[in-house]
Computed example of a mutant assay.
Amino acid sequence: MQTPIPCNMINGVIFDLDNTLVSSALDFDWLRQQLGCSADTDLLQYIDEIPTLSLRKKLQQTVIDYELADARQSTVMPQCQQLLSYLNQQNIPTAVVTRNCAQAAILKINHHKLQFKHIVSREDFAPKPAPDALVYIAEQWQLAPQNILYVGDYVYDLQAAYRANMPSCLVTNGENLPFTQQASIVIQSLGGLIKILRQQAYMLPQERDRVECNIQSGN
């Protein structure tokens, strides 16, 4: 099992989208069954490896249509607006890296009036758990990956952060998840991250250098 990257000084935050910033009712088990994909196979990889171009494009469009329908009925997650407002006040840059298609990601973000300079979808880089998109954001910000926190709700998010040499924050949304030990920080909702970042803001420089935020937060 991977050991999470220690979380020291956070100078940038990257977010997953679905069930992290906005809700999602996507049922990938059901979708796999509809598309003939086995339960233990990554759906996007399964589609990409289909040799027949016409069938591959058909299945890709089926997934996009499903994502767009989900985007139209999404809601913003608890404490999302408060967290983004706090990060903006602290001049901490933010971005989104999602496995969603670009259309669905932009639809969700615009619908809920969220603002991000960088929105990276699966059309831009290899999808998570590949680290490519996270590495790209770090280069754009000219920040060390160790000083950027990736926030998500699924094991792919933790794996991508680890491969990018970034600390990770797992949002459990109140669920008992089996992969919490792979996260640098575990919170129930986004409000818990506000508390952690405020604690960091009040630390002296020498304290920031020592702290390792492998924290379990109840909020």
Rank of each mutant, 00 (worst) to 15 (best):
L190E: 07
L83E: 12
M9R: 14
S217M: 14
K117I: 08
T52K: 08
A69L: 13
V186Q: 04
Y46S: 10
L35G: 07
M166V: 11
P205F: 08
Q182D: 12
T52P: 00
D157C: 05
Q89L: 09
C101K: 02
V135H: 01
L114H: 05
A126F: 00
N100K: 08
K108Q: 06
D29L: 10
R198C: 08
L149H: 03
D48I: 03
L190C: 05
R210S: 11
M77W: 04
L44E: 09
Y202N: 14
I10C: 12
V76A: 12
V135G: 04
L197V: 11
P51S: 07
Q200E: 14
S184C: 06
T52L: 13
M9T: 15
L84K: 02
V151L: 10
A133D: 10
A183L: 11
M166N: 12
R99C: 09
G174F: 01
I119T: 13
T62A: 13
L35N: 06
C7K: 01
P93G: 11
N11L: 08
E123Q: 14
N173H: 07
Q199R: 07
A102P: 05
I187Y: 07
Y136S: 13
H118M: 11
D27Q: 03
A133G: 13
P167Q: 02
L26Q: 08
R32M: 07
G191L: 09
L68V: 15
A144S: 15
D48S: 15
L31N: 01
H112R: 03
Y86C: 02
V13W: 02
A25H: 12
K57N: 14
S217Q: 14
A126I: 03
D124A: 15
F15V: 04
Y136G: 10
N100A: 10
T172E: 11
K57D: 15
D65T: 12
F116Y: 00
T3L: 03
L17H: 11
K108C: 04
A71S: 13
L59T: 02
L204A: 14
F125E: 14
L59F: 06
T172I: 00
G152R: 04
I47G: 06
S23W: 03
F116V: 01
N88G: 07
L134Y: 03
A160M: 06
A161D: 07
D157I: 05
D48C: 10
S121F: 01
S38I: 08
R99I: 08
I50H: 14
Q45F: 04
L26K: 02
I50Y: 06
L21R: 01
C213H: 12
W141V: 09
A25T: 14
D40P: 01
Q82V: 01
L43F: 06
A104H: 00
T180Q: 15
L26C: 04
L134T: 11
F28R: 08
Q182M: 14
L83S: 10
T180W: 03
I148D: 03
S24Q: 10
L31C: 04
P129G: 07
V76Y: 02
V211C: 09
I137A: 12
I14L: 10
A133C: 09
Q89W: 01
I47N: 03
D27W: 00
C169Q: 09
A144H: 09
G174V: 01
Q45K: 11
A160L: 06
C169D: 12
Q61G: 11
G36A: 03
E67L: 05
A39T: 10
L134N: 12
I196M: 13
K128L: 04
Q115Y: 05
L107I: 11
A164I: 12
N176P: 00
E207Q: 13
I187A: 11
